[in-house]
């Protein structure tokens, strides 16, 4: 019974999210474009599937992953857990939060792989690039970026250094990479910063940030708890460009090797 009311609630909630979007789409379609939608029936069924998909997805997250994720974020940042890992119980240094960084890395990586918005963009990227950019290649590159970003973000909360230094340094790296990365990947790389952080990542990462800011002495959850999402949006740009640079480098090296072989064969 509880499950059914939960489903109803989530479905209504998702409907409310979709409603303004649907109103805009169909409003413009009927009043401005004034042409019937091609395959209207199929599109409507598709939209309905998206709605059902998101509802079930959220339901599952609420039931399984969010409670346990939040609980684990709390437990790992709990001083009691950290005392058991360390016999001297007076002061903590940033190294003592080792498990937190590892958890941040692992949870950033794994939640990003399941992120629906990223799946959507990866499907499109593979289609448009004619298969040069694989769905899995992009998803793993982005997930690595988020993982490194969030791990570094938790370190920032523990060490208490100002957020904008990290972000500015990240911007500088992005700008330098932009000049050297293959031209085709740049817009996609910029986009991948924004798509990583939605349904799955934000709630878990926010819980981690707030839990950490509450337990680390001298941090205020209201001020230091923010900023993890910023890390999760910045680092994928770097990792996606790096992924493209790496694959370009490998192709070049392969070409050179072949050329050499050809030359030695013709001798």
């Amino acid at each position: 019974m509880e499950l059914i009311s939960e489903v109803q609630y989530l479905f209504l909630e998702t409907m409310l999210d979709v409603l303004p979007i649907a109103a805009i789409i169909f409003g413009f379609q009927f009043f401005v474009i004034r042409k019937p939608v091609p395959n209207l029936k199929k599109v409507l069924i598709g939209l309905f599937y998206v709605l059902i998909g998101i509802t079930l997805f959220l339901l599952g997250l609420e039931q399984a992953l969010f409670p346990i994720g939040r609980l684990m974020a709390e437990q790992l940042t709990d001083p009691a857990f950290m005392h058991s890992a360390k016999s001297v119980a007076d002061e903590f240094h940033w190294q003592d939060y080792f498990w937190v960084y590892l958890f941040a890395f692992a949870i950033g990586m794994s939640t990003t792989i399941a992120e629906p918005a990223l799946i959507a963009v990866a499907i499109k990227a593979e289609e448009v690039s004619g298969g040069a950019i694989g769905v899995w290649g992009l998803r793993i590159a982005v997930a690595l970026g988020v993982a490194i970003g969030i791990a570094l973000g938790t370190y920032r909360i523990v060490s208490g250094t100002p957020l904008h230094y990290y972000i500015m340094a990240g911007y500088v790296v992005v700008i330098i990479q932009t000049f050297f990365a293959p031209k085709l990947i740049v817009p996609l790389a910029y986009d991948s910063g924004g798509v990583t952080t939605s349904t799955v990542t934000v709630p878990l990462v926010a819980a981690l940030g707030l839990g950490l800011a509450e337990t680390v002495p001298g941090r205020s959850p209201l001020i230091d708890g923010f900023g993890l999402i910023a890390f999760a949006s910045l680092f994928p740009m770097i990792s996606v460009m790096a992924y493209a640079q790496l694959s370009e480098y490998r192709v070049k090296r392969e070409k050179k090797r072949r050329q050499k072989e050809d030359e030695s064969n013709s001798d």
């Binding site: 199929k42 409507l44 069924i45 998909g53 079930l56 339901l59 959507a120 499907i123």
Partner: peptide, 15 residues
């Protein structure tokens, strides 16, 4: 949910 979402994506949202 993910299965439905990806399916509906290709059928409705992208087109």
């Amino acid at each position: 949910g993910l299965t439905f979402f990806v399916y509906g994506l290709e059928m409705g949202l992208f087109p």
